[in-house]
Amino acid sequence: MSVIDLGASDYSLMLHNELIEKSEVKVSFNDKTYSVFRDDGMSIEQVRDVDNKALFFAESRYLTGDNDAEYWMLSEIKNELNGKIRKRFPTAHPACDCLDEDIELNNGRSYKNPYYLESESIADVFSQIQRGEITLTQTMIVPVYAYIHSDITVSLNPFGCRFDSGIIGFMLVSLSMLKEWGHNVKTGYLTSKHKSLIQTVFDSEINDIESVFRNKYCLVQHEDGYYVSSHIDHLKENLH
């Protein structure tokens, strides 16, 4: 059995290709040899079981998002819109919210609700955003696209094939979530710096999902016999 040197610049690609064909591959690092196996049990739920992650909604037989993700996404959006209602209409009836077509004031007058959500479907809400009917300044939501043809590939960018691809879900991060993660938030809206940070989160999580689909997780056996799960690209960090 050949041994892959983890000091090689292309070790990740070599190891990935070997694990597609073989159940066990030998690797060497710092004068030690380890056995590496495909981690066929790694799931999207496991790689997303981390702190400080985006809300991820998807419902299909190919990909399932987080539990109750649609509910929590809508909660973040409704909190923002209801806050805007209170600021713009300080004398609005306490029961008024973004699901009401009209804003009822305490003096009996009413106005068309500029923050009206037509539906509690996150797909419909995103469509409203795309049409410019509502604007979010404290919440960033992006569609997740999938190309499905014998296997599945996901991306934050649309695919060229209109027959086998389309939107499969959504990811969301809000200003309040950034605060919960410990970021120093001094504004009442997402700045360009916030949006850049959130985009990095989205990109990283899509990469994690893709890594599961591409079988890029492995199990490495240490000298004392126990196994550690690792992404192939970060294997050296999990060796000692």
Results as ranks from 00 to 15, higher is better:
191 T>C: 10
5 D>K: 02
79 N>R: 12
69 A>T: 06
192 S>A: 11
223 E>S: 14
138 Q>V: 00
60 S>R: 08
138 Q>Y: 06
13 L>C: 12
75 S>G: 07
12 S>L: 12
109 R>E: 15
86 R>N: 07
188 G>D: 15
187 T>I: 05
158 P>H: 04
166 G>W: 08
167 I>V: 15
24 E>W: 00
148 I>N: 00
174 S>G: 10
26 K>R: 10
174 S>T: 03
162 R>E: 14
97 D>R: 05
204 S>D: 15
3 V>H: 00
127 S>G: 01
7 G>P: 01
13 L>F: 13
239 L>D: 04
29 F>A: 03
102 D>T: 10
224 D>R: 12
208 D>Q: 07
188 G>W: 00
52 N>W: 03
187 T>H: 05
84 K>F: 14
39 D>G: 07
128 Q>S: 07
73 M>I: 10
81 L>P: 02
172 L>V: 05
136 L>F: 04
55 L>H: 09
126 F>D: 11
221 Q>S: 11
177 M>N: 11
233 D>P: 03
80 E>N: 03
174 S>L: 04
239 L>Y: 02
227 Y>S: 14
74 L>D: 08
94 P>E: 13
238 N>E: 09
85 I>P: 00
18 E>T: 09
234 H>T: 10
130 Q>D: 08
169 G>M: 07
126 F>S: 09
40 D>T: 06
91 T>M: 15
184 N>I: 09
132 G>K: 04
234 H>K: 13
211 S>T: 06
116 Y>A: 03
138 Q>F: 07
126 F>W: 10
22 K>C: 11
229 S>R: 15
16 H>W: 15
184 N>P: 04
15 L>N: 05
200 T>W: 01
48 R>Q: 08
6 L>P: 00
144 V>E: 02
139 T>D: 06
20 I>V: 13
10 D>L: 13
180 E>T: 13
228 V>E: 12
27 V>T: 10
78 K>E: 15
106 N>T: 14
171 M>V: 02
118 E>V: 08
17 N>S: 12
136 L>R: 00
168 I>K: 05
188 G>M: 03
166 G>I: 13
134 I>E: 05
143 P>C: 11
42 M>F: 10
101 E>T: 08
92 A>L: 03
57 F>R: 01
191 T>W: 04
139 T>G: 03
67 N>A: 13
